[in-house]
Design a protein around this nucleic acid. Structure first.
Length: 284
RNA sequence: CGCGGGAUGGAGCAGUAGUUAGCUCGUCUGGCUCAUAACCAGAAGGUCGUUGGUGCAAUUCCAACUCCCGCAA
């Protein structure tokens, strides 16, 4: 089987790793361009590219700004199927339908629930007790195509976004490897999604991470802390002897509906335990 | 040159131009207690980021540098 892998972040890298471990080496990978990260603007390649480089895979790495720029390259590869995991760009119909086995996607939710760009964070934020991973055929509407397989349920038990994402990537990668042979042989019958059950998620912004420790309910704050870290993060303002400071909330736990802050970070300081913060800052 | 905060014992913070640099926490020792993250007594532990400058005197003033971090992208 010849395939091209589309994906950029850690979630995608985990899935690609599973595929290659199972003997499926892509002809090429397509990921976002290297981007400057942080204050120092260090040029950082996406996780998928790093995986390929660190393993010295002799495959093509395509990092187009626009997918239309690499149409011809993709055509030349003459792949049987495209596999997409968290690529972050909308892929045009023309490209999706290039391979005769079309393009399949891995989406970290149980479709048709939580379509869109932040399924994992949204599930945590909404206090879902479990979620899962879906594999489906991608069409031109976002996360809309017929479903090939749905993973076992994954319990959500206080994980934060990166932790849950890692688990789901693992789960999704495993499922993909498992069903791929059947899909290639045409043994799987795609199931159309129920449109009436569909829900959508959107990206979060800094503003979504602002909380008020006094006014907001502990449960909601807790959900945000787990879902929105490390990016865009959760923050609040707190009055101390020295004045009002901005405080990021990195980790917390919920105990009998009381929010207990564990790890915080004052503006301009390193992350620290809340207990240590109290030693020096004396909130009012 | 995008904006800004910071560097003081293991941690978080104060602080001052001048014989012994403080506080909260932690650590160690002893005591109390059925017991404890509680309490009492005591102890160890700091070239006050680096380099240079001005002072009789600098950790405290000035300059440069290094490193850390928040925002923005």
């Amino acid at each position: 089987m010849k395939y091209v892998f589309f994906g950029s972040p850690e979630f995608a890298a985990t899935i690609l790793k599973k595929l290659t471990e199972a003997g499926y080496m892509p002809e090429a990978i397509v990921c976002n361009p290297d981007e400057p990260v942080g204050r120092k603007k260090i040029i950082t390649p996406p996780a998928v590219k790093q995986l390929a480089i660190s393993n010295n895979w002799n495959i093509k790495i395509l990092q187009p700004k626009k997918l239309s720029d690499i149409k011809d390259d993709l055509k030349k590869i003459n792949a049987d199927v495209f596999i997409v995991a968290a690529y972050a760009k909308i892929i045009s119909k023309e490209i999706l339908e290039m391979p005769n086995l079309k393009t399949i996607g891995v989406h970290p939710s149980i479709l048709p629930k939580y379509r869109g760009s932040s399924p994992i964070q949204s599930a945590i934020l909404n206090g879902e007790e479990e979620t899962g991973v879906s594999i489906f055929i991608i069409d031109e509407k976002v996360d809309h195509g017929p479903v090939l397989a749905i993973s076992n349920k994954q319990k959500i038990a206080g994980e934060n976004y990166p932790e849950l994402s890692a688990k789901l990537a693992d789960l999704g990668g495993g499922l993909l490897v498992k069903i791929l042979p059947d899909y290639l042989n045409g043994k799987i019958k795609p199931q159309t999604q129920s449109e009436s059950d569909a829900t959508f998620t959107q990206k979060f912004s800094t503003k979504d991470g602002e909380v008020d420790l006094k006014k907001d309910s502990p449960k909601i704050i807790f959900g945000k802390v787990k879902a929105l870290n490390p990016d865009p993060g959760v923050f609040t303002y707190i009055e101390t002897k020295k004045g009002r400071i901005r405080l990021k909330i990195l980790d917390a736990e919920l105990e009998n509906n009381n929010l207990k802050l564990l790890q915080i970070q004052p503006d301009g300081k390193k992350p620290m335990a809340y207990k240590e913060f109290l030693n020096g800052y004396k909130p009012i």
